[in-house]
Amino acid sequence: MTVLSPMRETYFPQFLEQLAADYASENVRSGRWPQENALTRSQSELMRLLPQGTATPDNYLFEIKTDPDGQTAGYIWFAVSERQGERSAFIYEVSVFSEFRRQGHARAAFLQLEGKVRELGLKSIGLNVFYHNSAAQALYTSLGYAPTNLTMVKTLKTS
């Protein structure tokens, strides 16, 4: 039975290292960032968003566990944001480690997250998904998420 467990302080450095690498890679793959300095840029962005680590106000970091005393199968991080007077949750990251994928952990984590978001009195949950990640898009759609915008880019060839 998958459970969300508040992220342990001892786990946070591992989370941060993996997230920085993944975020840099995804931004390079999507064409948003050049490979050069992508990791440094990613690390800098994460330090800006989580200056106090797991104690950063309005940020909620969880380990996705296989069961209450089980292995860490991944993690999920959301923050509370306010737009036009309405407070909502924004998921910055969700990751299920490769050996735990296709076992329902991500779906279970999202469903449990909804309860935590409701407890905070928030009205919605938003997230961003890279266009090339069709598996994530399918999961989010099946959970009731709907697209609200699409950013497009055209790369110009140098002459």
Rank of each mutant, 00 (worst) to 15 (best):
Y145W: 04
T40P: 09
L122M: 00
T54D: 10
F78P: 04
E119F: 06
L156N: 01
A138V: 09
R83W: 12
S30P: 02
K157I: 12
A79I: 14
P68H: 03
L61R: 03
A20C: 03
K154V: 14
V117T: 04
Q43P: 07
Y11N: 13
I76F: 07
P57T: 03
G126Q: 02
G74Q: 01
L143I: 01
F12E: 00
Q137F: 06
S81L: 14
V117K: 05
S42V: 13
F130S: 06
T40S: 15
L46H: 12
S5I: 05
K116V: 06
S5M: 15
A146G: 11
E114K: 11
D58V: 12
T56E: 05
T151L: 08
R8D: 14
G53P: 13
P13M: 00
N128E: 15
I76P: 13
P51S: 07
T141D: 14
L50W: 13
S30M: 00
E99W: 06
I125R: 07
K154S: 12
M7I: 07
E119Y: 10
P147M: 01
Q43G: 06
A55I: 04
K157Y: 10
D67M: 09
N59P: 13
D67Y: 13
F110G: 08
L122W: 00
Y60P: 00
Q71F: 08
A106I: 08
G31N: 03
L39P: 00
G74D: 04
E86P: 08
R8K: 11
F110W: 09
P51H: 02
F130C: 00
E17S: 12
I64M: 09
E26S: 12
R83V: 11
S159H: 11
T10N: 06
K65Q: 01
T54L: 13
T56D: 02
T2S: 07
L49E: 14
K116M: 05
R107C: 13
G74E: 02
A21M: 10
E36I: 10
L113T: 02
T72S: 14
L111F: 08
E82W: 02
F12P: 00
R83E: 11
G115D: 10
V153F: 01
A109P: 03
F12D: 00
K157L: 14
K116E: 05
R32A: 06
A109I: 04
E119C: 09
A21L: 01
V96T: 00
R48A: 15
V129I: 04
S98T: 15
L39K: 04
G74C: 08
Q84Y: 12
L143R: 05
A21H: 07
Y131C: 15
L19G: 08
R107F: 10
Y140F: 06
L4P: 04
M1D: 03
Y145N: 10
V28S: 00
A108M: 02
A138M: 06
S5P: 11
Y131F: 15
L16F: 05
Q18R: 15
A55D: 09
Q137I: 01
